[in-house]
């Protein structure tokens, strides 16, 4: 068992996850960034994408995967906090709707919405 860091995933509407994580991988504007325990203090802007984390739950390690909207990641000595607009589980995603959103966003040239819709589809494996 590796060391862990307190990890919080927060949207405006709720705390999606609060617990211990061994690893958090988020998509920053500069590319994917993996955060391990005792990471140097960091504040990063996130692009819509898929957030992955290895979290401890009931003594075992679990994979947490969410399609996330725009947001921020803060790594401080006392924990890692991710703030995002939305954090959807793959069960929450309506594939047909996500496809429509992707098409509408590309047509409108909305890069952020396009990336979010694409992330949703990728999370569902389509």
């Amino acid at each position: 068992m590796g060391s862990t860091v307190p990890f919080k995933l927060i949207t405006p509407a709720e705390i999606v996850f609060e617990g211990e994580a061994e690893l958090v991988i988020a998509v920053t504007t500069e590319g994917e960034e993996g955060i391990l325990p005792r990471h140097a203090p960091l504040l990063a802007a996130l692009r819509p994408g898929i957030l992955r984390a290895n979290v401890r739950r009931d003594g075992s390690t679990e994979r947490l995967e969410r399609a996330t909207g725009e947001g921020f990641l803060q790594a401080l000595p006392d924990g890692v906090t991710v703030l995002v607009d939305e954090a959807l589980r793959f069960e929450d995603i309506d594939v047909a709707k996500a496809r429509e959103e992707l098409a509408a966003a590309s047509a409108a040239g909305d890069r952020s919405a396009e990336a979010f819709a694409a992330a949703k589809l990728r999370l569902t494996g389509r």
Binding site: T28, T29, E33, P41, L42, L43, A44, A45, E70, P77
Partner: peptide, 18 residues
């Protein structure tokens, strides 16, 4: 002092997003 807080990509960019 928040220590040597590093900003990715830059503080100005993160502020503009925030």
């Amino acid at each position: 002092p928040s220590g040597a807080l590093e900003f990715l990509p830059t503080p100005e960019f993160v502020l503009a997003a925030l």
